[in-house]
Design a protein around this nucleic acid. Structure first.
Lengths: 144, 144
DNA sequence: ATTAAATAATTGATGTATCAATAATTGATA
DNA sequence: TATCAATTATTGATACATCAATTATTTAAT
């Protein structure tokens, strides 16, 4: 492949694959009749893994902007899967917790999420994934 | 790295890198005072590479849904960079063409787009890119 | 202690993604 | 040829991404 082609193809493919992955997750959730999106799931899971985390930390952890975090949390709150609790030490901060219902839906989704990951990496060896990760890191650095 | 980690890390990184790349492009365009987004650019460039193409073919080529194509073309049309011409053989179809202004902006953007690609693949060898492409194809197949 | 700077979260505006439904037209089939 | 199916494009609804601006609060500096 020519140089120019190689560079544009891999970047295009990077974007379309990421988009396809997101679409795939959303469809699998829907197929299981779970009313959640892939982005809502990322936040929900991460709150559960760090109960009490605040919004800005959650945004850093999930690589989402504060504005997006705010709005997606509104949805999760409406679904009663999380709560925002006032932080006793700072009135600016909300601490985030999953609710009982939240934990229920997490328990349902976890095995499905595993299936999704397994499917996505089918026929790809660990070594290749490691290499893949390294290249993604390199690209991220380049775009830093 | 543990198996589970490896699988979830690489998928997360795939998505965040794609997102970062998109953000990067938009910022570079803005920095050059060019009023275009990365998605508008993809469509504009592809119309130019296949003048007369119709919307559904353009969508396939750019891996975008018809609805998204329609709306982004509305924007490009408003900016007077493209036109939708009635197809004489089928009243359902519009043929897409870049305008004079469209070609002007394309000429301005092309070298910038090259810079972006060059920056993104800095310090990455062709062989690695080829391998990277193969893995992306594999993942795409898995999610097909 | 006051003022200035930084931080946490929200809101508004615009653009894109996706699904679902629809309109208009064309193609296939019986 | 009349009907049914497929195709092309659009629109509506909802969610997310991003930038910019704003509010409220906290921290730092003078």
């Amino acid at each position: 492949m020519k140089d120019k082609e190689l560079s544009s193809v891999f970047l295009f493919k990077l974007e379309t694959t990421a988009k396809q992955f997101r679409r795939y997750k959303n469809r699998v959730f829907k197929k299981h009749n779970i009313d959640i999106t892939s982005d809502q799931w990322i936040l929900l899971k991460n709150i559960n893994e760090a109960e009490g985390i605040n919004q800005s930390e959650l945004g850093i952890r999930c690589k989402k902007e504060a504005a997006a975090v705010t709005r997606t949390l509104d949805i999760l709150e409406k679904k009663q899967w999380i709560t925002r609790e006032a932080n006793p030490n700072s009135r600016r901060v909300y601490n985030l917790f999953t609710t009982k219902n939240g934990k229920k839906i997490i328990a349902i989704i976890l095995p499905i999420a595993l299936e999704i990951r397994t499917q996505a990496r089918m026929n790809i060896a660990d070594d290749d994934l490691t290499m893949f990760n390294r290249l993604l890191d390199e690209i991220l650095t380049n775009l830093g």
